[in-house]
Amino acid sequence: MTVAPSRRFGRELVTVILFLTVAFLIAPVLLTFVGSFAGEWSGVFPSEFVTLRNWREVLGLAETIGSQRSMGWDSLLSVGGYTLAVPSELLFSIGLALGGVFINLVVGVPIAYAVARYDFRWDEWVSAISVLPLVPGVILGVAFLRAYPDLSGTSFGLIVGYSLLKAPFMVMAVRSEFESMPLQRLEESARSLGASWPRTFFTVIVPNARSGIVSGAIICWTLAAAEFNFSYIVWAKGTQPLALFLQRHISNSSFTRAAAAVSMFFCIIVAVTVLLQQVGSRGFDPRG
């Protein structure tokens, strides 16, 4: 009796595809991180380990020939002769992305609840519009330049743009959390105990959906911190958002220094993800 080829090889083949895909996605990430500590990278693998020169240059701690290429430093506060300085591009992007996440929370959580909890006329349209990215960053950038010529390049313009571009991710994350909750029962029990509807929403519904809200915030923050397309079109002068800083390094710097810039970005993504997961699993948990 012959055994069907899919019974003999199917599972192995599919598993091999999975591991090849993981290798394809992750190998360059690891290689970049390792390469950022190398002095030279012209063969298959980087060489002349271990040097921190690339990192120091990217962070603006070492003098570079084109000094505008490294990160600038802003003094945050001065106490008795000591100045606490922070890399300005980094701080700027963190702030912009947080602003975007804040707007996303204000607009995304309520509409996710409306779609998950209520049936109403046009609800399919509302749900489609709220979870589909309306326009890509480039188009929105052109539109902002045209509609708000003075405002588009400012921090406020960038924050509003980021929040519109990333809102669908927040709505998706929060909505799937709401959909897994017994919303009607929760709402009715709270209301039968005398809570008004707004009180029910803010003190019962929202805290119960915190894990979805936190994961939505993580996704939105990382996506907004790395937003390139919209920023590239509207940004005019002043401190650069992080993505433009990265692009400048990728296009102009040596390979090892570009690797350091990209690795710095990896570190931020990993750090913020871990941090917000900690907050999500501990900080908000009334039982914990």
């Binding site: 790395a226 397309n229 990265l246």
Partner: peptide
């Protein structure tokens, strides 16, 4: 969570 420019660098 990687922007397109970083994807290009990976390639």
């Amino acid at each position: 969570s990687l922007p397109g420019i970083v994807a290009a660098f990976m390639i």
